[in-house]
Amino acid sequence: MKVLVAVKRVIDYNVKIRVKADNTGVETANVKMSMNPFDEIAVEEAIRMKEKGAATEVIAFSAGPAQCQETIRTALAMGADRGVLVQTDAELQPLAVAKLLKAVVDKEQPGLVIVGKQAIDDDSNQTGQMLAALLGWSQGTFANKLNVADGSVEVKREVDGGLENIKIKMPAVITTDLRLNEPRYASLPNIMKAKKKPIETLAPDALGVDVAPRLKTLKVEEPPKRKAGIKVKTVAELVDKLKNEAGVI
């Protein structure tokens, strides 16, 4: 069974982002970019499946500008076998990414697609569910634990009240939550080896996908700032403030 994982290039989670002065978006020039943390978890899960013999090949997919090659290389260094880059400088929204993924799924016929539950830049939390819909496949979202057995996957999901267990038929789309695993770091020899692994580059047109954005971003602004508070010296002072100033207890 092949496993396809999606890896998105995003601003590193440690970067304090800045809104552009003209309110058209967020400053991305000269900021550190990394693989979306949820996608590292997706790659790790796929590699573990291969190590256990449940998967035969792990393919890393990314869509976006040429620099997404680096993100794919990171996945290859972690242990993925090869990459597919759908290269475009266009703004990609989740429905478009899902359609690109579907086109690659149609070609590669994986038994599982694993994507992050959300990308930490746009925070949409949509792509995996949309892909499952387009394929008519089952979906195991916010996965905390997976068990692949006999043509189905047992998925433990992180939900509002705790955890939920479902069993879904394969082929399926999985979206990862934080506790699914702890992704490995790529070792130096594996980083070197990854340089030789193949990456296929495709264009959205060649896949017959229209990626035109459906949502128009009118503006991007700074959120309102909280006004700075004060430090209190004692518990007694705190309780007094909460009672008599804030009126919350």
């Binding site: 939390n125 387009l134 999901r157």
Partner: peptide, 23 residues
Amino acid sequence: ADSVGKNIAPRVAALLDVAQVSE
């Protein structure tokens, strides 16, 4: 936008071939 809405709404959107506005 709770764990039910986040799970279901995008599936509905894609089946209708429309975008979703999240949260």
